[in-house]
Amino acid sequence: MRVLACSVLSLLITGTCLAQPANPEVWMMPRGDEEGRAFRVLFEQPEQWAETRKRVDVLSYTDLNLQRHFKDDELRGWFAKLKEWKIKMAMEVGAVKPWGTTGEKTFNAERKNWERLQSLGMELHAIAMDEPLCCVREQIHMPDEHALKETANYIALVRRHFPNVLIGDIEPYPSVTLEEHKAWVEGLQKRLAEMKVRALDFYRLDVDWLRFNVQGKGSWRDVRQLELWCRQKSMPFSLIYWASGYPAMEHRGLADDSTWYTAIMQQGYDYAAVDGRPDQYVIESWIKAPSQCVPEKDQWTFTRSVLDFARKFVPATQP
C-alpha cells in the first residue's frame, strides 16, 4: 500500500498532496564495454557483491550487448542465478534509430534476440527505450510527429508479442526542456490510447547535470517538477544516477574511479536537497568508469557505489 506524504516542495509546486513511492526500486546497469567484463564478473564472482544484491531489485543491460558479448551456455546459467537471487532482468533497447527509422523495423531487428534470450531462461521484466525523441531530432533529423508515430508503433508491437513486459522511455534533460518532456509524454500516451494500446509503464530521465552549473541550463527543481507531474499521471518516475562531469574531468586529466563514486553521491545529495524521490533509482554507467565492478568492499568499485548509494539515499522497503 502506497504511503501518502506531503512535502513542502510538493505543496509549493502543485498545491496538492501527492503519493510518494513507498517501495522505490534500485536498478543497476554496469558499463557495457570491454566485451561485457563488468557484467560477466557479477556472475563469476557472486561472493564479491553479496551485500549489494540485497539492495538491488533490477539488473539491466542492453539487448545488443547481451547478444554480442555472451554465449548461450553462459547466459542460461546466469539467468538461473538471477532467479535464485530474486533480481529482475531489464534491457535498454532501441525504438527508433538510424538503423531502424520505423518502430516496426527496429522491433523486427530485435525480436529474434529477445526470443533467444527468453529461450535461455531470461524472464524479461522491463525494457527502457533509448531516447527515441532525441534520436529522431538529432540523428534522423525528422519532426517530432515521426518520433510519436514510430515510438507508438514500436510499443504496440512489444505489447502484442511480449504482453507482460513493462515499457518505459528514456529521454535526456536539459537538452529536452521540461515543457517538451510533458508534451512528448502526453502526445505519446494520447497516440497509444487512440491505438487501444497500454500506456507507458514508467518515464526515465537521463540528466546531464554538469550543465546546470557550467552552462546555466536546467535545474534539479525542474526535474523534481517532472517527477511530481509524472506522479499526478500515476506514472512511475525513473532517474539515472551517473557521473555527468566525468568526461570533462577526463579531458582535463583529473578523472579516476573516485570521480565516478563522488559524482553519483553528489547527484544523490543534490536531488535529495529538492526533496526528489524517484520510483526507480537507476545507477548506470556508459562511460569508462569505474574500472572495476567488484568487490563491493573495495573503494570506488561499481558495486560499492551502488551499495553505498542505496544505503544513503533509497528509503528502506516498507512491508
Rank of each mutant, 00 (worst) to 15 (best):
T14K: 05
T14W: 07
L18M: 12
A22I: 07
E25N: 12
M28E: 14
E34N: 14
E35R: 12
R40G: 04
F43I: 02
E44I: 00
R53N: 01
K54F: 05
L59T: 12
Y61A: 09
N65I: 13
H69N: 15
L75W: 00
W78I: 09
A80P: 02
L82W: 00
K83G: 08
E84I: 06
E84K: 11
K88F: 05
M89E: 08
M89I: 13
P98W: 08
E104Y: 03
E115I: 10
L124A: 01
L124K: 01
A128F: 14
D130T: 06
C134S: 13
Q139H: 14
I140A: 04
E150V: 03
A152R: 02
I155V: 15
H161C: 01
N164K: 09
E180P: 01
E186I: 10
Q189I: 04
K196N: 13
F202Q: 02
L205R: 04
Q215M: 07
W220T: 00
W229K: 02
C230K: 03
L254E: 15
W260E: 08
Y261F: 15
I264S: 04
Q266A: 12
D270L: 14
P278M: 01
P278V: 11
D279Y: 01
V282T: 07
I283Y: 07
Q292I: 01
Q299N: 10
F302D: 00
T303I: 03
V314Q: 06
Q318N: 07
